[in-house]
Amino acid sequence: MKCDDFQLMVSTYIDNALDPPSQGTMFEHLGTCSECRVFLRSMLDLRAGLAALPAPEVPPSLDKKVMKLKMKRISVMKGAGERMRALWLHRLSVPLPSAALIALALITVTVLSISLWQKPDVISVYCLPAVDVYAEQPTNPANSE
């Protein structure tokens, strides 16, 4: 490979578009070639020099002209309607099911709370200690006779 090829790699590298194996090859070469090191430095200088250039201000006259433009609706309204429908479906696809789930959970909690409040016995039923139905029953002396 010639220095031209490595310098092309340097240009690609500063665009973050050079793959890692090629980066290794490039840095290996840079370690031994002063000409390509100078090139890398000049690329970094150039980038800094270009970044320092001020951005031109948009003239207010352009704002006025563009804002006066009349907009043309897309020729077939049916198509526009379909696009709007698709847009709203896309927008609602996540929040709507989430809201429905939250609402369902809230309703369930509310119904349970009300039923527990109105029938406190339910609590005692659920909270009774477990009874071993197979345990030996105490015998009644009156019956044994």
Partner: peptide, 30 residues
């Protein structure tokens, strides 16, 4: 989405697209 809205006649969508790109396009052209 802005394009969709703009095509259905929403001027605000067009204004937003203009706001987004005017500086970059103007600087590029200058």
């Amino acid at each position: 989405e802005l394009l969709f809205l703009m095509h259905s006649g929403d001027r605000r969508a067009f204004a937003e697209l203009y706001r987004r790109y005017k500086r970059a396009l103007y600087a590029f052209c200058v």
